[in-house]
């Protein structure tokens, strides 16, 4: 399990272990929040951790609303913090 994967969060270099979820890698890297809500502009991160609450949504390689707790990181992923609906509205 020593293989390290490299990816970016808003352009900044991050690392993850093979098989790690995006949420796991981000929290290991010190981030607790990566989404802001569309009405109150409040920060959100992991809540249920098992794909039920959709609070940990994030944009991966341009695709919005990926559940960070379930999706595995892949080499070279461009991960971006998400605002509101994730579609720039």
């Amino acid at each position: 399990m020593s293989d390290e994967i490299r990816f970016t969060l808003d352009g900044e270099g991050m690392t993850a272990r093979t098989g790690q979820s995006i949420a796991g890698a981000l929290i290991a890297g010190g981030a607790m929040s990566w989404r802001r809500t569309r009405f109150d502009d409040r920060p959100r991160g992991v809540f249920c951790g098992i794909g039920a609450c959709f609070d940990c949504l994030i944009t991966v390689n341009g695709e919005a609303n990926v559940r960070a707790c379930l999706a595995q990181v892949r080499e070279g992923d461009r991960v971006e913090r998400q605002e509101g609906t994730g579609y720039g509205e």
């Binding site: 796991g24 929040s33 920060p43 809540f47 098992i50």
Partner: peptide, 29 residues
């Protein structure tokens, strides 16, 4: 999945369900 009940501040990052904490620790180390 976990049954949460609301209280002020329960949406703050760092507040998560027991299952969420377990999945991070056991699943993600």
């Amino acid at each position: 999945f976990d049954r949460p009940l609301p209280f002020p501040g329960w949406t703050l990052p760092g507040v998560m369900t027991g299952g969420g904490a377990q999945s991070l620790v056991k699943g993600q180390h």
